[in-house]
Design a protein around this nucleic acid. Sequence first.
DNA 1: ATGCCTTTGTGAACGCGTGCACAAAGATTG
DNA 2: CAATCTTTGTGCACGCGTTCACAAAGGCAT
Lengths: 269, 269
Amino acid sequence: MATGRTHRPATRSRGIPEATVARLPLYLRALTALSERSVPTVSSEELAAAAGVNSAKLRKDFSYLGSYGTRGVGYDVEYLVYQISRELGLTQDWPVVIVGIGNLGAALANYGGFSARGFRVAALIDADPAMAGKPVAGMAVQHTDDLEKIIEENGVSIGVIATPAGAAQQVSERLIAAGVTSILNFAPTVLSVPDGVDVRKVDLSIELQILAFHEQRKAGEEAAAAATEPGSAVGGAAPAAAVVPPAGRTTAEARKGGPEGDVPAVMPA
Amino acid sequence: MATGRTHRPATRSRGIPEATVARLPLYLRALTALSERSVPTVSSEELAAAAGVNSAKLRKDFSYLGSYGTRGVGYDVEYLVYQISRELGLTQDWPVVIVGIGNLGAALANYGGFSARGFRVAALIDADPAMAGKPVAGMAVQHTDDLEKIIEENGVSIGVIATPAGAAQQVSERLIAAGVTSILNFAPTVLSVPDGVDVRKVDLSIELQILAFHEQRKAGEEAAAAATEPGSAVGGAAPAAAVVPPAGRTTAEARKGGPEGDVPAVMPA
DNA sequence: ATGCCTTTGTGAACGCGTGCACAAAGATTG
DNA sequence: CAATCTTTGTGCACGCGTTCACAAAGGCAT
């Protein structure tokens, strides 16, 4: 039910897999680019390449939306842009509030991609009285006291939290109480919200830590590979204590402690 | 996200599932908070609640790291902090460069969470000559011309891209050529990188679109529910339906009726 | 020591997502 | 119209991730 049509076979847009939904914006972006270049049609292979996914996956994704392709030809770009936009709800207007106008909040407010697709920054809200009235991205910052009023008057259902971690939970509660049902959280905290409220989080710190993990793993494998020369690989065992300095990256500080295999420093009783 | 890493069966005893890796930073954050409160031990149930996950999942996650718990008691907080930190590679120092010092790049540079855990901003890089030398977050911005030199001299293996979409691919190529093997991409573009390079993307626009999808779905369900009981209007913060007519269907003019035969009807308002 | 109580660690079942491979559908050409 | 070629749509199998449920393990009181 992209909309409220009740007569529609429930199998259509009701059950779109979450993984597919997450890729639709990707397809939409690629399609928009094609559209601007006035490309009339595109094959699943081409579009998949542009979106960085497997073509079979793309076709399956589109099959959840309906049969919008033409065999032997491909997909009509304009038509697909419209269908995906509609499915994602981008044919509507979504007023959004940003709470917490610090460095990040201000950057988000200035971000052009916001208004690009149906999203409109309805208000910027900050708890600091000194911020109130100040113009950010051509818009006066409003004080947290008016949060509820702003939400209700503008019919806001999506809120963006860019406050410090300590304030995030409370802000989310106020947003939700005022009627917000979707939150995009930039604060490094786990928000606990009632059922029916969607939360997506963007966490720089976590992303970096995940990258660091893989980076360390790569360094470990490199070291292990280098060690393959002398004695054969250690088999299924762990990268062992192959604490060989990463090849080619010997600059900077000497990496203390290898990838793994060093002895635990502390082991409490 | 990550592109490469297809080989490597990951069947290794040390092979930690990707999903688990993604949660480790979450656990670490919760554990750090406990540590600061001097809590000595924590049960899987408590920690899981703090991290917002299922306790069985948490125990299984930890089981990949080894048996660090004590039955009947729980996990030693300090010890676990250390183990996870080590596993994530946070006991090392990770110099990072941020490329693209616009609103977002500057916000990232000022973000405290960076230096918090082993990550150190080694340099801020921008293509605008006017930016060169300017201080941002207490650090002079450097020009893109010196990118390669900076990477090599500082042994940088992680790069953050905060440039406009158009510049991102080229920047990534230069970073990779200079030795970077992990990229955190904030630009709204799909980066194509060689195997062995990890890319994680943070895309505000995509997150919002995913939220919009669910928001629309919720509104549709509400409307459908309301339709069952005629009379009651939809309350809440559902945005006004501003349905746009289908874009010009140039090529497939005389196509079969519509998407599913229906023109986007306005929601039962 | 013995028995009870708490909590971990994990076997097993299930569901989701992915990718292969191919038949069917439509365009296109002769 | 028939043959051929291109590309979609999808059945199927596989692997990963999640969750349940429980036996084993350790602490603690008696």
